[in-house]
Design a protein around this nucleic acid. Structure first.
Length: 717
DNA sequence: GTGCCTCGAGTTCC
DNA sequence: CTCGAGGCAC
C-alpha cells in the first residue's frame, strides 16, 4: 500500500487561513482519503504510512478547514471517525510579545506598598497624581488573539508565557470573539480571558451527566477543557465567553492610557468588563476591591481577585518588567477558600538533593473546586509550628496525626495547612517526631546550621536520591529524553536485567539490550516500535550542549541558569573539568576565576568543586562523559565584533535579559563588563531606574545608550 | 549590613 | 506556585 507523499507534503505546508471556499471541497476530499489510508494502515498493519507529525498536521488542517466552512464538511469527515488516534497536542505558537503573569497581593498593605514602589521607581512624589485601573480578575484561561489587517488569523493559549498552543479553530467558535475588525491597527494582538458563566457551567454539567460523560469540577476547568478540544465542533457546543483586557504586539498604539485602550477594544467589538474603574489612590483601589468582593456572588462568573494597572501607558513602558512579571500591575487576590479535614498521616519524601520533605496525607476534601488529599508540610519547623527563627508561627500548635486541620490552596494551586483545631485533637495524638535517619536508605539525616531542611547524607548510596537525580537528568531543561520520564526511570532503576542506576547507564542501554536475552521488547508496555523510539530518542541526545550536560548533573545550587553561565565561561567540557581538577575551595587562581563569573558566589562554587572532586561522583560523571559528544558553548568570532575590547557597564533595569545574561553575552563578544563607571568605560547601558551611574557617565562624557541601542549594536535587535 | 531580585528546589492536581 | 537562600547593588 502506498500514499501520495507529494500531496501529503503539499497539504502539510498549507496554511488553513489561505484556504478559500472554492478550494475547500477538493482539500477536504483529499484529506478524507489520505487520513483514511493512514488510519487503516496504522490500525491494521503495523507499518504507518506517514509519520505522526504529518498525520497530526493533516488532521489539524482538516479541522481548521471544516471550522472555517462548516457547510462543506463531508459525510465521511475524518473528524468523525471513531478510534482514529487523535493528536495529544496542538501546534506550538511563539508569542510575539511574551504573555506574563502578575505578582500577587493578599493584604491591603501590599497594595499600598505596590503603589509606593511604583512611585519610587518613577520618582513621582507622594502628592503628585498617579492613576490606576482596577478590574475584576476573571478565573478562566488567558488567550491571545492575533489580528492582521482586521482578520483573526491566530488564537494561542498562554502556555509557559513564551510559547503557547494554537487553538485558532476553537477560538473562532466563541461568539464573543470577532472574526473581523474594522479600523483596527494592521497588527493587533488582543489578550483576554476565556471563561464560562456559572449558569452555563451547571447546565453543561447536567448535560454531561445525562450523556454519561465526565463532569467538570468547576467553571474554570470546564472552560479550559472546552477550549482545548481537538475537535472544534465540541468547543462550538460549549458556551464559552471572552473578556478582553490587554494586548500584545501592535502596529500602532491603541491609546495613551490603559482605560482608554480598553474602551477602544470595546469599540472594536470586544466584551470588556464593566466593573473596570480608574482609581486615584490606594484607598480608592481597595474600596473598589471591597465593592467587587461584595458583588462577587452575583456576578454570574468566577473571579479570584482584582487587577490594578498603572493607567498611563507611557509610565507602564518606563516601569517595564521583572523576569516574569510587569512592574506596573499587580493582582489583589481574594482570600483563599478554606476547608477542614483530618490529617491522616505524615509521610517523608526524599528529594534529589537528599532533602527530607514531609507530606500531609489528608482525608479527601473539596477545596476551591478540587479534591485534595495531599498537602505540603515544607519542613520540620513547619510541623512543629515554628518559623525559621525558632519563633512560634502557630503558637506552638504542633501538627499531630489525627488532628483536624484547615486546608487551603496557595495561589489556588498548592494545598497547604493553615490552622489546627486543638479542641478536636484526639486524646492519643502524639507529637510528630521528625526522623533523623533517611527513611529510604537509613543514612543519617542532618540539618546544617541555618538550614531549614534536613538532608539525607547517603548521597549516591541512597536509592531515593539516585532515582530523583536520574529523573532530573532526563527532565526538560536537561537531557529531555522522549519516552524516558519519571515512570520509566523508576522501572529501569528496579530492573534486574537492564538496570539504569546512573546517567551513563542510559547511554549503554542499547548495547546491553542488544546483548541481552531478556530484551526490553518482551516487557509490559514495550513493543518493537516503542523500543526503537526510545533508543532513537537516547541516541538523539548523545550529542549535548555543555550547559545542558552540566544542568543534568544536578549539582546542588547549580540550576539551569547557572549552568549556562558556567558553560559560556569555560566554553568546553575539557576546560571545565580541567578547571575543576585544579580548583581549591576558597583560594587560588581557579577559584578566583570561578567567583568572577557573574551570578556565581562562594556557595555555588564550593558545591561545584566538591561534586567534581568527590571520587565516586567524579567517576560517575566521567563514565557519562565517555558516552557523550559534548558541544562547546557557542563562542562567536569576536574579531569583527563591534564591542571587542570595549569596556561596558550595565545599570538600571534590563528588560530583555537578566543582568547576568547580559554580562555573559557581552563577554562572549569580547567586551569587558565592569561594575562601575570610570574614564575607561566605553559604554554605559542604562535601563529604567538608572541612578548615580548615569550621572557619573554624563560627567565623564561616557557614551550612554539604552538597552535597545545596545542590542542593535551587538546585532541582536 | 540591608534590601531587592532571581534562581533553585520541592510540591499538587488535572 | 511558593519559600528559602544566594548574589549583588546600594
Amino acid at each position: 500500500m502506498s500514499i501520495d507523499d507529494a500531496r501529503v507534503a503539499e497539504l502539510r505546508n498549507l496554511d488553513p487561513n489561505d484556504v478559500t471556499a472554492d478550494a475547500a471541497d477538493a482539500i477536504l476530499a483529499d484529506l478524507s482519503e489520505l487520513l483514511g489510508q493512514a488510519n487503516s494502515a496504522y490500525h491494521t498493519d503495523d507499518a504507518p504510512l506517514i509519520d505522526d507529525a504529518s498525520y497530526d498536521a493533516l488532521k489539524r488542517l482538516n479541522m481548521a478547514v471544516e471550522a472555517a466552512f462548516p457547510n462543506k464538511k463531508r459525510e465521511d469527515s475524518p473528524t468523525d471517525q471513531v478510534g482514529a488516534p487523535v493528536s495529544e497536542t496542538f501546534s506550538k505558537v511563539t508569542h510575539a510579545v511574551r504573555m506574563l503573569s502578575l505578582s500577587n497581593a493578599f493584604a491591603d498593605e501590599e497594595v499600598v506598598e505596590f503603589v509606593d514602589g511604583v512611585r519610587r521607581f518613577l520618582n513621582i512624589a507622594a502628592d503628585a497624581p498617579l492613576s490606576f485601573t482596577a478590574e475584576p480578575k476573571i478565573d478562566g484561561l488567558s488567550l491571545s488573539l492575533r489580528y492582521e489587517n482586521g482578520q483573526l488569523i491566530q488564537a494561542a493559549t498562554r502556555g509557559d508565557g513564551a510559547v503557547g498552543e494554537n487553538v485558532t479553530a476553537n477560538a473562532k467558535t466563541i461568539a464573543d470573539i470577532p472574526h473581523t475588525l474594522n479600523a483596527a491597527p494592521d497588527v493587533l494582538e488582543v489578550r483576554g480571558e476565556v471563561y464560562m458563566s456559572e449558569a452555563d457551567f451547571l447546565a453543561l454539567n447536567k448535560r454531561q451527566e445525562e450523556a454519561g460523560a465526565k463532569t467538570f469540577a468547576n467553571p474554570r476547568n470546564a472552560a479550559a477543557g472546552s477550549l482545548r478540544q481537538l475537535d472544534p465542533k465540541i468547543t462550538a457546543s460549549r458556551p464559552l465567553r471572552f473578556f478582553a483586557y490587554a494586548w500584545g504586539e501592535l502596529s500602532a498604539p491603541l491609546a495613551t492610557h490603559q482605560s482608554k485602550a480598553i474602551a477602544r477594544l470595546q469599540e472594536l467589538g470586544f466584551q470588556t468588563n464593566d466593573l473596570t474603574k480608574v482609581c486615584e489612590t490606594p484607598e480608592e483601589m481597595i474600596a473598589h476591591y471591597t465593592d467587587i468582593m461584595l458583588k462577587r456572588a452575583d456576578l454570574g462568573y468566577d473571579i479570584d481577585g482584582v487587577v490594578y494597572k498603572v493607567d498611563d501607558l507611557a509610565l507602564q513602558r518606563r516601569l517595564g518588567f521583572r523576569s516574569t512579571t510587569p512592574r506596573w500591575a499587580i493582582a489583589h487576590k481574594f482570600p483563599a477558600e478554606l476547608a477542614w479535614t483530618r490529617l491522616v498521616a505524615i509521610d517523608i519524601q526524599v528529594g534529589r538533593t537528599g532533602a527530607l520533605s514531609p507530606v500531609a496525607r489528608l482525608a479527601p476534601i473539596t477545596v476551591g473546586g478540587v479534591v485534595v488529599s495531599n498537602a505540603t508540610l515544607h519542613n520540620e519547623d513547619y510541623i512543629a509550628g515554628v518559623g525559621g527563627d525558632g519563633h512560634p508561627i502557630r503558637e506552638g500548635r504542633d501538627l499531630r496525626v489525627g488532628d483536624l486541620v484547615q486546608v487551603y490552596r496557595a495561589g489556588d494551586v498548592i494545598p497547604k495547612i493553615k490552622d489546627v483545631d486543638l479542641s478536636k485533637r484526639p486524646d492519643d495524638a502524639a507529637p510528630y517526631v521528625f526522623p533523623d535517619v533517611c527513611p529510604e536508605c537509613g543514612s543519617h539525616a542532618i540539618r546544617e546550621a541555618g538550614d531549614a531542611v534536613r538532608r539525607c547524607t547517603g548521597g549516591l548510596i541512597c536509592p531515593a536520591q539516585a532515582v530523583e537525580r536520574l529523573k532530573h537528568f532526563v527532565s526538560r531543561g536537561a537531557f529531555d529524553i522522549d519516552g524516558l520520564g519519571a515512570k520509566q526511570i523508576e522501572m529501569f532503576y528496579q530492573d534486574e536485567v537492564l538496570p539504569i542506576k546512573e546517567p551513563a547507564d542510559i547511554f549503554t542501554l542499547q548495547a546491553r539490550n542488544a546483548a541481552s536475552l531478556a530484551k526490553l521488547q518482551n516487557r509490559d508496555g514495550f513493543g518493537e516500535t516503542s523500543v526503537k523510539n526510545l533508543m532513537q530518542a537516547i541516541e538523539d541526545k548523545r550529542t549535548i550542549p555543555l550547559g545542558k550536560l552540566l544542568f543534568g548533573l544536578g549539582i546542588r545550587h547549580v540550576g539551569e541558569s547557572a549552568s549556562n553561565l558556567l558553560a559560556n565561561h569555560y566554553g568546553s567540557w575539557q576546560a571545565l573539568t580541567a578547571a575543576m581538577d585544579k580548583s581549591e575551595v576558597g583560594t587560588g587562581e581557579a577559584w578566583d576565576d570561578l567567583l568572577n563569573v557573574d551570578g556565581v558566589g562562594a556557595v555555588m562554587a564550593t558545591s561545584l568543586i566538591e561534586a567534581f572532586q568527590n571520587d565516586a561522583e567524579r567517576a560517575s560523571i566521567d563514565r557519562l562523559a565517555a558516552e557523550l559528544t559534548v558541544l562547546d558553548a557557542e563562542v562567536r568570532d569576536t574579531s569583527d565584533s563591534p564591542v571587542a575590547g570595549k569596556t561596558v557597564v550595565f545599570t538600571g533595569t534590563l528588560e530583555k535579559m537578566t543582568r547576568a545574561e547580559a554580562k555573559s553575552r557581552a563577554e562572549a563578544l569580547g567586551a569587558k563588563v565592569s561594575g562601575s563607571v570610570s574614564a575607561k568605560t566605553d559604554f554605559l547601558v542604562a535601563g529604567p531606574g538608572a541612578g548615580s551611574k548615569a550621572k557619573k557617565a554624563a560627567d565623564l562624557g561616557v557614551e550612554t545608550i539604552d538597552e535597545d541601542a545596545w542590542l542593535a549594536l551587538i546585532g541582536e535587535a
